[in-house]
Design a protein around this nucleic acid. Structure first.
Length: 589
RNA sequence: GGUUCCUUGGUCUAGUUGGUUAGGACGCCUGCCUGUCACGCAGGAGAUCGCGGGUUCGAUUCCCGCAGGGACCGCCA
């Protein structure tokens, strides 16, 4: 086997006349008889090889080559004839005349072609992930991810952060996401949990005197998957002592700016805009607003408070909201049928209906127009209606209005291409509520996590009316995705105990679960805070993908299984005996 | 846990009043071809129509159940 001198994708005019040795996979063979062309591929690209009767032995081997065979060749680079130039290839002006070829390995016929325009199903691609990974766009995405990690390590190292690993076998805590449990053999009936995040450990590192910690931490959450959620994922995890929320955000902005520069060549504008959580919900119907376009939600309660239109007035009288978005100059693109399809869709958020009207020739039309004639002029003025505008109303409870209109705003902007898909719009969402009400379990839970510091001026609410408190927490949002989030933590044992009490922890329960933290807070814990950025989502967005599967080498499918290795699998009964575990029949799937 | 859609050669798919030789494209195999790059030409192989049951003279097609897959809601401190 000849030592490789160059990569296929880098052979250009500069190489003309040079003798090269290339390794790669056979992309395509075009056999013209006494002349054979082979496209040879490596991760840098494809170059055309020529086999002809000048080198009969090589030609003979070339006849037997098939897709994905692995070969090494020796040959000479030459310019193609003017008529044979292929503008679609970066190597299209040249070709390599092969005199010697060695077959390094055969391949059976692959289940799908190794190309970016692959038409195989997601399932097939995952089953043959090692082939999927050979595709150029996958190579690019996984390499982008690696580059981001490299930039992160450099930036954080240069800024005095130290990389510390925290345990993966940790205690389970019932707050938050469902844990992946790992049974203990030594103590049957006892379990470790895989970390949902290194939260408590990084706080303890602050107590331990490492005032700038970071880690590319693997995290595990046993919850159902989405396009931007996998059961195991990686966080760029940061924690700092003696820093304010603003200072932590500044460091984070520097980190993001560095990655954007390294990976995309983009100089992002700093600082990123900040928006209060309350405003984000009111204006965008989302705690992770996509600010690349407008179409903000408009509150119309004052206009419709005395309306005869019962649907609106009734909602307002019951403490609900009437809000609308205006689709500018595109009313003609939306038929009654389109709008009813959207109405059907938003029912999943609990919306009972979708009222709408169109504005043309200085008047409103549509099914609800006749009910709101009294408010027409006020509405036209408030919304600044112009010809061919479409107005979509949702009247309901606050959360339903936000969910439904927040969804419609994004879906319609995407449909009408109201933003540049190559733009990267970062924003901070700050000043979150400290608590949120969980309808499912009928109690208040921590909006961020139980170790989040309330705003200074709200600390007194912890004793009086905890649910009025806002928190020193912040999310970093990119193009409508929650890229990361963090907070200033509670460093005072007294406040931490009040917080746990507000969450209805008894003192005993609090100590049983978080005793080590409560203890640590008493030994001179420095003020501290931090945040974590989802590496997978960041890589996904920088790669222009819409699923984090595409930036994870071996991801799970949407049912949290892995079609290639068939994880999770049943285990040998003896393993269960060792662990003192019995699988109940009813849970057997 | 729920809603909804899907499952036909290796891959992607067409297929309705229930009777078809289950059609196409790409891929694969054989032969021919010295300027192809979506090479071309000629020929060929390859499908128990996801599994089980039901209705029917007859089911890829209709019904029920199951399995697998996708999207979404819940869930994701």
């Amino acid at each position: 086997m000849e030592k490789r001198t160059d990569y296929c994708g880098s052979i250009t005019e500069k190489y003309v006349g040079q003798r090269v040795s290339l390794d790669g996979w056979v992309q395509k063979r075009r056999d013209l008889g006494g002349l054979i062309f082979i496209d040879l591929r490596d991760y840098k690209g494809i170059v055309q090889l020529v086999f002809n009767t000048d080198h009969k032995e090589a030609l003979e081997i070339a006849e037997s080559l098939r897709s994905e065979y692995v070969i090494n060749i020796l040959g000479t680079v030459r310019l193609r004839d003017e008529s044979a130039i292929n503008d679609k290839m970066t190597t299209g002006k040249v070709e390599v005349v092969v005199d010697t070829v060695e077959l390094l390995n055969k391949s059976v016929t692959p289940p799908f072609e190794i190309t970016d325009n692959v038409d195989a199903s997601e399932e097939t691609k995952l089953k043959y992930r090692y082939l999927d990974l050979r595709r150029p766009e996958m190579q690019k995405a996984i390499r982008t991810r690696a580059q981001i990690k490299h930039s992160v390590h450099e930036y954080l190292h240069d800024n005095g952060f130290i990389d510390i690993e925290t345990p993966n076998l940790t205690p389970s805590t019932p707050e938050g996401a469902r844990d992946y449990l790992v049974p203990s053999r030594v103590y049957p009936g006892h379990f470790y949990a895989l970390p949902q995040s290194p939260q408590l450990f990084k706080q303890l590192l602050m107590v331990g005197g490492f005032d700038r910690y970071y880690q590319l931490a693997h995290c595990f959450r046993d919850e159902d998957l989405r396009g931007d959620r996998q059961p195991e994922f990686t966080q760029i995890d940061l924690e700092m002592s003696f820093m304010s929320a603003e200072e932590i955000q500044e460091v984070t902005e520097g980190l993001i700016a560095r990655v954007m520069k390294d990976e995309k060549g983009i100089d992002v504008k700093l600082p990123f805009p900040r928006i209060d959580w309350d405003d984000a919900m009111a204006r965008y119907g989302s705690d992770k607003p996509d600010i690349r376009f407008g179409m903000e939600l408009q509150d119309l309660n004052d206009i419709f408070a005395e309306s005869e239109f019962k649907v609106f007035k009734g909602t307002i009288d019951n403490g609900g909201h009437v809000k609308a978005i205006v689709v500018k100059n595109n009313a003609d693109k939306y038929s009654r049928k389109n709008i009813e399809a959207y109405q059907e869709y938003i029912k999943r958020f609990g919306a009972k209906g979708l009222a709408w009207l169109k504005f043309n020739d200085d008047k409103i039309t549509g099914p609800v127009a006749k009910f709101i004639t009294a408010q027409e002029s006020a509405l036209v003025e408030r919304l600044g209606l112009e010809n061919n505008d479409l107005v979509l109303f949702v009247a309901d409870k606050k959360k339903v209005v936000a969910d439904a209109l927040g969804y419609l705003r994004v879906a319609i902007a995407k449909e009408l291409k109201l933003y540049d898909p190559n733009e990267f719009a970062f924003t901070w969402v700050v000043n979150w509520p400290l608590f949120e009400y969980d309808e499912g379990i009928q109690r208040w839970t921590a909006a961020h996590h139980p170790f989040t510091m309330p705003n200074e001026e709200d600390i007194h609410y912890l004793d009086e009316d905890p649910h009025k408190a806002y928190a020193q927490s912040y999310d970093i949002v990119l193009n409508g995705y929650e890229l990361g989030g963090g907070s200033i933590r509670i460093h005072n044992a007294e406040i931490q105990e009040k917080m746990l009490k507000a969450l209805e922890f008894t003192k005993e329960k609090a100590y049983a679960q978080f005793g080590f933290l409560l203890d640590a807070l008493q030994y001179g814990c420095p003020p501290h805070g931090g945040l974590a950025i989802g590496l997978d989502r960041f890589a996904m967005l920088l790669s222009g993908k819409d699923n984090i599967r595409d930036v994870i080498a071996f991801p799970k499918n949407s049912n949290a299984t892995e079609p290639m290795t068939h994880a999770p699998r049943e285990v040998d009964p003896n393993q269960l005996v060792d662990l003192g575990i019995e699988v109940s029949k009813t849970s057997d799937k």
